[in-house]
Design a protein around this nucleic acid. Structure first.
Length: 443
RNA sequence: CGGGGUGUAGCGCAGCCUGGUAGCGCAUCUGCUUUGGGAGCAGGAAGUCGGCGGUUCGAAUCCGUCCACCCCGACCA
């Protein structure tokens, strides 16, 4: 992509409305634009990141054995009449009346809807387990949205659901998602901690939050110190094996959210306990019969009797993740994207567009890397060098290639690693061998 | 939902107290100069001063009211 034809409205000053660092940077980098409180338009750069994250999540959900589908954003209110949920949900639910005076709502979550779909089609234990997920926008009319996309009212979420014959088999799916989450966050370049919320309860509801550590996180986690250096390298495992031992190996370490942490009964001695700010990015639940029972989601068992299915639901806040990642990865000059989710893998800066040598070299590199499948943003603008460098730092692409009159005559360019700031002068030929995907795992 | 704060050019802000023809920086447009960290000079364009009502000869400024947005708390992916 050429910067000259890319919609990238960067800002030198951040708008007054933004206070949180990730919010400011996302506005300044031209990623998002606020529409109203907690509701944003995603401009091309932000949209690209959103899609990258979405795709990694999708691949991992598929790998874990879930079926992708899509449920609507607008739901009929009748779905929520069970157990008086429609009334109990309160003002957080955005209620809509259509022209026929039917009560509708913009879905804050999809448990009722998915259960409705399940029960209409699945009637036998032989069809279990059943695993479905979708990636869709949700709306919760929060009392106070804040932190930009980290806590919006409209948000993109991956929500997966599982249906099983009993608690034990439901646990298998729960463990699958647990591992899928570790893999997903790992691929996103994030160190995510599963936070055991209800560690002591047996047979009751079970749920884990996944949080990433960030200096200005909105919540806090209490955990064992060795979590921080824990090996989250989970490349080698088989979803069809018994995952319980692996999951247990992660859960043996203590972790709790601020709200759930009990300093009196904490099993960890103080010296081994650490308290850190974090952001919640995922949540998995074993739901039991909470939705299946009132909805009448039952299957016929081998003995001919009907049985209410056991459900699980598993969410990842995708739009929130974008903000959370920016919150975790930035420096004084701007965003510093982890390579796997960067909107472009590298930025090619032609410092002097009028210089024919620079232009020829830039076009040459651009053409060759593009055809090699590298996703590049080339700054072919007439901005001054200082502006170009500042913008490239701001939008945080992992690598920068600088073509300047200083070096271009000698077929040399400068490459800079955005994270380390380390610069290196290499030949044009070497650029190709270094950044083409055949030689380096960039994608 | 309680408490605090802000609405003036695309962005950041001054002006308001003490009413009198709308200002500054950056961005943008034109020209010249400059060219490795958000340039310099000169010129230009751009505003129903959040909306409505009131006071006044005259309102960005004073009064009333409504709206939008931000921050702190309680609450959530």
């Amino acid at each position: 992509m050429r910067l000259s034809s890319y919609f990238l409205p960067t800002l030198k000053n951040s708008p007054r409305e933004a206070d949180t660092i990730s919010h400011r940077l996302m506005l300044r980098a031209g990623m998002i634009q606020q529409s109203s409180t907690g509701i944003y338009s995603w401009l091309p750069l932000g949209f690209k990141v959103l899609k990258r994250i979405e795709q990694i999540i999708r691949e991992e959900q598929n790998a874990a054995g879930w079926n992708e589908m899509l449920m609507p954003t607008i739901q009929p209110a009748e779905l929520w009449y069970k157990n008086n949920c429609y009334n109990d949900y309160g003002p957080e639910m955005l209620r809509i009346t259509d022209r026929h005076k039917h009560n509708m709502l913009y879905g804050p979550t999809n448990e009722w809807q998915i259960t409705d779909i399940f029960k209409k089609h699945i009637h036998s234990y032989k069809k279990l387990p059943s695993r479905l997920y979708h990636i869709q926008w949700k709306f919760r009319d929060e009392v106070r949205p804040r932190f930009g996309v980290m806590r919006g009212r409209e948000f993109l979420m991956k929500d997966a659901y599982s249906f099983d014959i009993d608690r034990e088999t439901a646990k298998i799916n729960y463990n699958r998602q647990f591992m899928a989450y570790l893999r997903t966050f790992n691929r996103l370049g994030l160190k995510a901690l599963p936070v055991n919320a209800d560690s002591g309860l047996i047979g009751g509801k079970m749920n884990h939050e996944f949080v990433i550590l960030a200096d200005k996180g909105e919540s806090e986690v209490f955990c064992q110190k060795d979590w921080l250096n824990a090996d989250v390298n989970i490349d080698k495992f088989d979803y069809n094996e018994n995952l319980q031992p692996v999951v247990d190996s992660y859960l043996k370490r203590y972790s709790a959210t601020k709200a759930r942490h009990d300093p009196v009964n904490c099993p960890i001695e103080l010296g081994n306990l650490i308290n850190l700010p974090c952001i919640e990015v995922g949540h998995i639940f074993y739901l039991g019969n909470k939705y299946s029972e009132p909805m009448g989601a039952r299957v016929t068992c081998p003995n001919g009797r009907k049985k209410v299915v056991h459900m699980g639901s598993y969410g990842i806040g995708i739009s929130r993740l974008v903000g959370a990642i920016v919150e975790a990865y930035n420096d004084k000059n701007g965003i510093v994207w982890p390579e796997k989710i960067a909107p472009f893998h590298l930025g090619l800066i032609n410092l002097s567009v009028d210089d024919m040598t620079c232009r020829t070299a830039s076009e040459d590199i651009y053409t060759k890397l593009c055809s090699a499948g590298v996703d590049i943003l080339m700054d072919d603008s007439y901005y001054r060098p200082g502006v170009k460098l500042a913008i490239m730092d701001l939008i945080g692409l992992p690598w920068q290639i600088v073509v300047s009159p200083r070096h271009a005559v000698n077929k040399i360019v400068e490459i800079k690693n955005r994270r380390t700031g380390k610069r290196e002068e290499i030949s044009v030929e070497e650029v190709l061998t270094r950044f083409a995907p055949a030689n380096q795992a960039l994608t």
